[in-house]
Design a protein around this nucleic acid. Sequence first.
DNA 1: TTGAAAGCGCTAACAA
DNA 2: TTGTTAGCGCTTTCAA
Lengths: 333, 333
Amino acid sequence: MRKQEVTIYDVAREAKVSMATVSRVVNGNSNVRKETRERVEEVIKRLNYQPNAVAQGLASKKTTTVGLIVPELTNLYFAELSKGIDDIALLYKYNIIISSIENRLMKEDQVIQSLLNKQVDGVIYMSNRLPKEVVDAFQRTNTPVVLAGTKDSREELPSVTIDYKKADTEALNLMFNDGKKNLGIVVGDEDAIVNSDNRILAYKKFLKDHNLTEEHIYTNVHDYSDGYNLYSQLVKDGVDGVIVTRDSSAVGILNSAMDAGKKIPEDLEIVTASATQIASVVRPALTTIKQPLYDMGAVAMRMLTKLMDGEEVDDTHIELPYELVKKQSTLNQ
Amino acid sequence: MRKQEVTIYDVAREAKVSMATVSRVVNGNSNVRKETRERVEEVIKRLNYQPNAVAQGLASKKTTTVGLIVPELTNLYFAELSKGIDDIALLYKYNIIISSIENRLMKEDQVIQSLLNKQVDGVIYMSNRLPKEVVDAFQRTNTPVVLAGTKDSREELPSVTIDYKKADTEALNLMFNDGKKNLGIVVGDEDAIVNSDNRILAYKKFLKDHNLTEEHIYTNVHDYSDGYNLYSQLVKDGVDGVIVTRDSSAVGILNSAMDAGKKIPEDLEIVTASATQIASVVRPALTTIKQPLYDMGAVAMRMLTKLMDGEEVDDTHIELPYELVKKQSTLNQ
DNA sequence: TTGAAAGCGCTAACAA
DNA sequence: TTGTTAGCGCTTTCAA
């Protein structure tokens, strides 16, 4: 960071006004006479003055920067959420500092602390791993936080999600109506609230409501190869219909089945719960619970702007509509 | 950004030293007596003092923040590059401000200006759209820049790439040896240097060297549906082997062919030039020019840290090795 | 080894 | 409508 070439002071001198007036012009304060404003603007343009955002941040205590905490960079689920966030951030002129927490050099609360040290005005948190320390860390600060695509166990933090229970129940019902009676569920982190308190509960309730007794819950299935390897276990367990939270795991299961010469959906129905691009390009295409990821990100960011502006937000737990999109991995009878 | 609760001043008072000494302790300056250091550290811990990075940035003129400019958030190619960048950034304690330029609210040079106003210490630029204004904007500043996975036309800016000409030639050769004599190339932005000055040149040279006269260059094919729609044109043109720069376009072509009942690779060979996850999960799996995306990002970020530290960098145009991975979309005879 | 003090570039009372 | 002035919280000479 070189010595700044032209500062507000240079503009003030050149335009024969005080720094305060230049500051007012820069910030669009209306208390400036038209002619003065124009003169200052002319000088700003002539000198190509660019305000130093760091100095602005220090003086005003607002950095117009928000922190984004994401589990992995290379997961389209989070990328699509991020895109919605990014578009709204741009609209409201916020920059985004992105922090992934897959690298175990830094734990969640350290990442948050680092963001807070940078004086971000707000944070959007997308991991469904939400340990108590993290919730505490957020609650200790006055910096607003919004959860996107996840929630905390006591629903204390603002969040934007879909109705996971309802969505999963609908998906299970689809497979049940196709005649599949040995249903399973495949999730990533088992301790994630979205899983433990929503998806898995819904699954158990579904079994109970339909007098199905065989419970098949598979946890810690995170990626393509986890899914690929899981398939043989599904066969062993006689599972004939499965709901999978992660697209790449679902595709792993699919390919493993195909490679084993099995028929999808006849031998095994698959419903995936994310609907990123990867779920739609494989053949047979996967039936999905289509979460409105872009919108979820956008709504979360919009809520955050309100929180950062100190506005009242009436509903801090927003559930967006999802869609069950029937493709080729279910019979859809 | 609330009023900061505990500042360097509080620590100084409590530890009965000056702010300067606290600053030295915080920054690991060795000119502090051991006992003094320990006393200060104790107070820091007790008060839970966290330095304000914005104030540090203003005073020291270093923000330990780098800007990342990426064409799209939802493209695994850039996500994998970003992951390499992120890991090295974390190692060197830099934060990342990410800016996508897909949203046309802001042009490239405005995005760059916004980053410079935030006083980033360096920038990594990943778009292969590199208009003259952008190169100029970079050269006007003293802020170091590294291009990752792309280069500027006059190769003035530091970059990390692979040897695109060599890679494409090798891919074309593979198809040629499989008996395909009506080869085509499918690219995204035709004016991207990587395409115009590298891939397309290599393609033309290959045709010439092998006395092939029919030139099939398809430009502006950006995504899955562009690829899907292009397929009928390929058929019309009698193309029997094609090299595609983007994975999603390649998968579009593949699926379009499959849906039309064609055989891949018998009717059409496909080689894709990125090798993201999407290319490996489709069936038949795509033969790819496997770019070491993670490494490219990591090397680019490492180079940037050197540049930011004012170190001499001997080689500012690094080409990393790629690998031609033969899968099911080529005959491989 | 330590401290005093000037300043980084800006904002925001407050006064005029 | 404009200017004066005191910070924002820290780093960094310079002197002791």
